[in-house]
Amino acid sequence: MNGRVYADEFIEDELISEFVINTVNGGEELKPPKIEAGAAIVIDAETGRVLYEKDAYSRRAIASTTKIMTGIVAIENGNLDDKVKVSKRAASIWGSTIKLKAGEELTLRELLYGMMLKSGNDAALAVAEHIGGTVENFVAMMNAKAKELGLKDTSFKTPHGLDVEGHYSTPYELAMITRYALQNPVFAEMVSTKNMTITNRSLYTTNEMLSLYPGADGVKTGYTGKAGRCLVTSATRDGFQIISVVLNCASRNKRAESSKAILDYAFNNYRPYELLKANQELGQVSVYKGKKSSVSVVAVEGIRLPLSKEEKENLETELTLYDSINAPVYKGVEVGKIEFIANGKLIARSAVKTAEVVPEKKYGDYFRDVLDIWFKLAKPE
């Protein structure tokens, strides 16, 4: 059984042009693009900072981009070398498939590649039944993971993303799911793969951006009648990784063009800067009744953030510390905050903590202080 299928929920036989190869030069500032997508977003993969958005918080059908959550839940809860027996339910699903047959056995790893590369709905059901016991139990696991990630506008009804009432997410939350999933090296490797041979099958990715966009390293396509053409893309250049989402595009070309436009916009308008190092010393706070008169304070967290040229030029830092702290002082006590403000807007913050211990003065310490003063006064000039 061999076949090359470039399809998602429906067969997509539309050819993709080579337009993406001619990218703009790094450093050339771009204006926010006008794109032919119903909703879209670009975020920084490291911090989650939003770099571009268009109606990014509206609930929408997301088609097979659903499988991003299916994939990460399966990877986190399964053994990739497990043998999975395909059920009749999985083998009979419609739309994009890898042509699984009831009773056939593949490893969980192979099924995940079939699901992520070729968007196999049959593979998604087989994965769900294996991990969850039933599809319904697995969908509950997907929703539990969404809740764990703090998502408020995401609801899963299936592991494959075919149009069902009540199955939705937003560009922002889909980007945040992707950001989380890409932190898993197994997931990241799968979604960056262009082709793969598994049992009796040659798989070729449905993700046109992997071949057309320089630096693209993921993630997932989607296409249903309700959702339109959808695409989640990850791209990395010089260690700067960003994630784009476009939903409800009219064609494969339009979703690729829209993805290119917003990725170019982000890469050419933003650069990552290290604003603060973890444990970076920031000053001193006075200590009342301590063996030392002050204590060193440091940043709790490091901050590395993508900034536009304008933001970098107008960046302000505000350090707020306690006037004093009573002894005894323990290491790691929060004593203030440091904030970074660009164009009047707070863009990052870290708490500030004590870096050392300062014991409280005892009676003997005060007595020695008095003696020191007396000897200094009594010492002849």
Rank of each mutant, 00 (worst) to 15 (best):
G239F: 09
G283S: 01
D369G: 13
M209R: 00
A102R: 09
F267P: 06
A216V: 06
E12C: 02
G225R: 06
D13K: 11
F340W: 13
E360N: 02
G26S: 13
N279E: 09
G222H: 07
A74R: 13
S96I: 00
K34Y: 05
A327V: 03
E334D: 02
F156W: 07
A181C: 05
G283T: 02
I177F: 05
G150Y: 04
A351V: 00
A37R: 01
L100Q: 08
Y57K: 10
S293I: 04
V139Y: 10
D217R: 01
S202C: 06
T205F: 12
L210V: 03
I262G: 05
V24R: 11
I72H: 11
S350A: 00
A7Q: 14
K379P: 03
P171M: 00
E339H: 00
L162A: 01
E360V: 10
A146I: 00
E165S: 11
A126W: 12
T224G: 01
T233L: 13
E281H: 01
A342Q: 10
Y57G: 03
A140K: 15
K226Y: 01
S234Y: 09
S258M: 04
P33T: 01
T47F: 08
A278V: 07
Y172C: 03
K101G: 04
G364N: 13
T221K: 02
S259C: 02
V295M: 13
V246F: 12
E129A: 02
A266V: 03
Y57H: 15
Y366F: 15
G38D: 09
D81N: 14
V84E: 09
L108P: 11
S169Q: 04
I16E: 12
E311N: 02
E301V: 00
L117C: 10
A250T: 09
T193N: 05
Y6V: 10
T221G: 02
F138M: 14
G222V: 03
R89D: 15
I62E: 04
R304W: 04
N143W: 14
V86R: 09
N22Q: 08
P185C: 07
L108Q: 09
Y113P: 14
V86Y: 05
K309W: 05
